[in-house]
């Protein structure tokens, strides 16, 4: 009950990060991959995370995706604090609430598209029955209703990524995390995939996408720039555009 009150208070916040830190030890040196990230993601937002390599955007994705645990700070997902959860509970969260899309698709070559999409349902608490219908539904949602029986090596790059997106959507996740989803695709195909994201966003899907290409980021509604493990700019697409027009580079220090 208190959670409900909490979420209505915070106006449909799906993700809330407070003072999030992630350190790595490499020998004697301590690397601050994330150094105090504050972020709120609301329902049906479409966010692009930008930054140079080493800026901490990949670590942020890993923490958001519950693949990694923060060293410090809090992370609330759908109102639940996930920093205290066990490995098994995190696995359930990844399964039920998060959909991953990777740069290199990560489809299993020995399985056809349907089986690939079904895979998360195998690990879902109530995914056993009717899983092939659900997987088929997800494939139709990404426009691959006619490619169900094809294996990854019989699909084009764009189609592979669509299968991967269908796999991410099949458990109806709260949030879709895409890590450079167009990094391995040519520009025409990239456009198709980004249009698909657009459409999913219109259907109400919350999306967080990591990219280092400005053109790709333009599809998002909110653009976050990272530097040295911190968020250095968090603006709407229009604000970001305006700022880039006026100030050139966007390495300003303004925060949320």
């Amino acid at each position: 009950m208190s959670q409900q009150a909490n979420s209505t208070n915070s106006n449909d916040v799906i993700i809330r990060l407070q003072g999030l830190k992630r350190f790595y030890r490499v020998g004697v040196e301590e690397i601050h991959a994330l150094d105090g990230v504050e972020l709120e993601v609301r329902e049906n937002e479409y966010i692009a995370v930008m930054g140079h390599s080493g800026s901490g955007k990949s670590t942020l994705m890993n923490v958001l995706g519950c693949l990694d645990r923060p060293s410090d700070g809090s992370y609330e997902l759908d109102g639940d604090d996930v920093t205290q959860l066990s490995d098994a509970e995190l696995a359930s969260i990844r399964n039920e609430r998060i959909g991953f899309v990777f740069q290199s698709f990560e489809l299993l070559p020995q399985m056809n598209a349907l089986k690939n999409v079904e895979m998360p349902l195998l690990y879902a608490r109530n995914g056993w029955f009717g899983r092939s219908a659900r997987a088929k539904g997800a494939l139709e949602r990404v426009g691959l209703g006619d490619r169900v029986k094809h294996r990854p090596n019989q699909l084009s790059g764009g189609e592979k990524q669509r299968v991967a997106i269908a796999r991410a959507l099949v458990c109806n996740p709260s949030i879709l995390l895409a890590d450079e989803p167009t990094g391995n695709l040519d520009s025409k195909t990239s456009e198709n995939i980004l249009e698909l994201f657009d459409e999913l966003h219109k259907q109400g899907q919350t999306i967080v996408m990591v990219t280092h290409e400005r053109d790709v980021a333009q599809y998002a509604k909110r653009i976050i720039r990272m530097q040295d493990g911190r968020i250095c700019s968090d603006l709407t697409k229009e604000q970001d555009e305006a700022k880039r027009q006026s100030g050139g580079d966007t390495s300003g220090k303004e925060k949320l």
């Binding site: 693949l67 490995d87 098994a88 696995a91 359930s92 991953f100 895979m119």
Partner: peptide, 14 residues
């Protein structure tokens, strides 16, 4: 890689 993927989409250790 496959194991990593399975874990990412929600496969528990068990």
């Amino acid at each position: 890689k496959e194991i990593g993927l399975r874990k990412a989409v929600g496969a528990k250790k068990s």
